[in-house]
Design a protein around this nucleic acid. Structure first.
Length: 451
DNA sequence: ACAATTTGACCAGA
DNA sequence: TCTGGTCAAATTGT
């Protein structure tokens, strides 16, 4: 809608444009003057987005570094939020870290795996989102950090995985602290940067914020940015190897890519596939974060007006997106949750939930998933897992990609851990809805909780 | 043949 | 003038 299509005055230059090798290294377009040798081409294609289907097929996905661990922070209620650290450890049961009033450690073991769940619940000030609460959170996160340190010591240095896990927890926690610190230090959060799904920023709406009623309004702002805007941070389903973050339940068509000043990674521009057929004006921008290439910042503009029926519409579940995920996941857990209070305010009601990898059920049967294929290698479906803002109004779906770990067998284990989490949670405040809430985890989206 | 992606050019806002 | 968002021809994949 921004600028009318016919407005493009002269397109002649485009018509006679010739493809030349892009200066950027990721250029893979065949130059008019030089046709790459097959091997050369294959190499280029292997690195290009275009060939990623093929590449995915031929490349058995290596174990992701997020396979075993997530640090998650979740909005719990308007007044409190929950931090869950779940570390999985195979073979050597971890010892519970020191307990404290605000920390709950639970050790659940089953078969060859063990879980250590450190749950930290803390209250935050409802009003002082840019100050006091942040300080408390930082303090508590620091405690977590210390706990992890202790845990690492207990686990001993022999187990590579343990070390990896603790390292991961540590770095994530540290990063979370950094986020909070940065956010609260500069007079609160950057509303533009951290306007996470459904969680309004405390700052006055920026020119690009969503208060616009329609595509055309004021004259000072870019027309494009007049629309509703939501930003989420999600991780890549392929541990950063993928070009796109989790699928959000909508079909998008890429229409542009741009190098952004000061950013390490280009920004991709997507619009709804049904833009022309149904006039859906929803767009999104996807960009890898500088800090962690496995994470994406996804900015959504505009609401979907298209009617999108998932292929699994015939499934009995009432949430089509959930079905979609269930089908697409090779073996996973999909949980539909009721929206958080803050989320409920959002018409779309979806959260900035990032995938939380918990376990690998990989049952021999009973699951639509196929056992012969690694969950991570699923080329045609890997795009489809993740969160779905798609259609749920007050619900959203969080799905959890399983580990790729032969030693990790068990839905049982998952359930056990989940049960542990549930048992551990029993919150005083507006109840955590059991598994739903606990599994509905925002991956290091701490800042949003101060919004 | 059709669909999707790539990529340089164009355009508008700052 | 710079930067970011979009367009659309060319290219590639299915």
């Amino acid at each position: 809608m921004g600028h009318g299509a016919p407005q493009r005055s002269v397109r002649e230059s485009c018509r006679r444009q010739v493809q030349v090798p892009s200066p950027s290294s990721r250029s893979h377009t065949c130059s008019v003057s030089r046709a790459p040798a097959p091997s050369d081409m294959a190499h280029q294609l292997a690195q290009s987005g275009r060939s990623r289907h093929h590449a995915r097929r031929s490349n058995p996905s290596p174990p992701r570094r997020n396979d075993a661990l997530r640090v998650s922070l979740k909005g719990h209620s308007p007044g409190s939020w929950l931090v869950s650290l779940a570390a999985r450890h195979s073979r050597t049961p971890p010892h519970s870290p020191a307990s404290s009033a605000t920390k709950f450690a639970r050790h659940a073991s089953a078969n060859s795996s063990s879980f250590l769940v450190v749950e930290l619940r803390m209250a935050r000030s409802m009003e002082s989102g840019d100050g006091g609460g942040g300080g408390l959170v930082v303090t508590e996160l620091s405690h977590i950090k210390e706990l992890v340190r202790q845990l690492e010591a207990h686990l001993g240095g022999s187990d590579e995985l343990c070390r990896h896990l603790t390292t991961e927890i540590f770095s994530l926690t540290e990063r979370s602290i950094g986020i909070i610190t940065a956010a609260s230090s500069s007079s609160g959060l950057d509303a533009r940067k951290w306007e996470y799904a459904g969680l309004a920023s405390p700052l006055p709406a920026t020119p690009t914020s969503d208060v616009a009623d329609g595509p055309f309004r004021s004259t000072k702002k870019r027309k494009v940015m007049e629309k509703r805007k939501q930003q989420v941070r999600v991780s890549s389903p392929r541990g950063g190897a993928g070009e796109n973050p989790v699928d959000d339940g909508h079909s998008w068509r890429k229409y542009g890519q741009k190098e952004i000043l000061g950013a390490k990674h280009p920004r991709g521009y997507y619009r709804c596939t049904h833009r022309h057929s149904q006039g859906c004006l929803a767009t999104k921008q996807v960009q890898r974060t500088d800090e962690d290439p496995a994470l994406f910042d996804v900015i959504y503009h505009g609401d979907h007006t298209c009617v999108q029926r998932p292929a699994v519409a015939a499934a009995p579940e009432h949430n089509p997106d959930a079905n979609s995920f269930l089908q697409s996941l090779t073996a996973g857990l999909t949980v539909k949750t009721e929206g958080l209070p803050a989320l409920a305010a959002d018409p779309r009601g979806w959260s900035a939930t990032a995938p939380f990898y918990l376990s690998t059920p990989t049952p021999a049967s009973g699951c639509p998933a196929t056992a012969e294929r690694s969950p991570f290698s699923a080329p045609s479906t890997s795009e489809n897992w993740g969160v779905s803002p798609a259609t749920s109004d007050s619900n959203h779906v969080a799905s959890y990609l399983p580990f790729e770990d032969a030693g990790w067998r068990g839905q049982n284990e998952l359930l056990e851990v989940v049960s542990a989490l549930v048992a551990a949670s029993a919150p005083p405040a507006p109840a955590v809805d059991g598994l739903d809430e606990l599994l509905d985890i925002d991956d290091v989206d701490i800042a949003s909780f101060f919004a």
